[in-house]
């Protein structure tokens, strides 16, 4: 599966599809840190970044999973000894790319963006929030990829509409039971992230896992 993952990553990089979400990432980071974040507000900035970059993570996952033509996916299934490994390799490649994007998002403000270097604990919390964001984004991107949604227009609308819906729902009282983007942003802004970090992590990982499970299930009849 590792070798197939490398093949998919190589195809993604060579196809230049990587540039689209990468440009999106850099633009958003440019907006986030166009003015220096004052000391003490680093965790709040990280929380906003992790929540708002979900759409970039989803875009990256979708474009990576769409890189291979349909017939090549079938070839890859036989080469990797089964559909499960092809699906797993695709998700692993998507997570790898998004991990790289998340690392850029966490490190960039340390180089330019924060007025002062935050405490290591805040950097770690920021990294955890970005991991939650990339999990949710990867699941959303997978569910809108070509094997699941044949129409590019419907796929893009679902991706961006799904992300906006995610934000809006997380504003409501039931937000804590979905991917709790707004709750983690508010808690970080109020300096109370530690008190909600565990339930926020559990909810975000639960919904990400549910989305990925749905993707794997749908791929059984959509090779």
């Amino acid at each position: 599966m590792t070798r197939l993952t490398r093949f998919k990553l190589s195809a993604y990089a060579r196809s230049h599809r990587l540039f689209q979400p990468a440009i999106g990432l850099l633009l958003m980071l440019g907006v986030f840190y166009s003015t220096l974040t004052p000391p003490g507000k680093e965790l709040s900035a990280y929380a906003d970044s992790a929540g708002l970059l979900i759409v970039v993570f989803a875009w990256a996952a979708r474009s990576l999973l769409d890189t291979e033509p349909a017939a090549q996916r079938l070839v890859s299934m036989t080469a990797a000894d089964g559909p499960g490994r092809e699906i797993g390799a695709g998700l692993l490649a998507a997570f790898t790319v998004n991990l790289m994007f998340a690392a850029i998002a966490v490190v960039t403000p340390l180089l330019h963006g924060f007025a002062a270097t935050p405490a290591p604990g805040d950097v770690a919390r920021g990294a955890v929030l970005h991991l939650l964001g990339l999990s949710a984004g990867t699941a959303l991107g997978a569910l809108t990829s070509h094997p699941i949604m044949q129409s590019p227009a419907a796929s893009m609308l679902t991706l961006f509409g799904g992300y906006v819906a995610l934000l809006l729902v997380s504003l409501t009282p039931v937000g804590r039971f979905t991917v709790p983007v707004m709750p983690w942003m508010r808690a970080a802004n109020d300096g109370a992230l530690d008190t909600v970090l565990l339930p926020v992590t559990a909810a975000a990982l639960f919904w990400s896992a549910a989305g990925l499970a749905a993707y794997v299930r749908l791929r059984r009849t959509r090779p």
């Binding site: 195809a11 033509p69 017939a71």
Partner: peptide, 8 residues
């Protein structure tokens, strides 16, 4: 139809 739309 072999998928030639690949960057290799």
């Amino acid at each position: 139809v072999f998928p030639t739309g690949q960057p290799f």
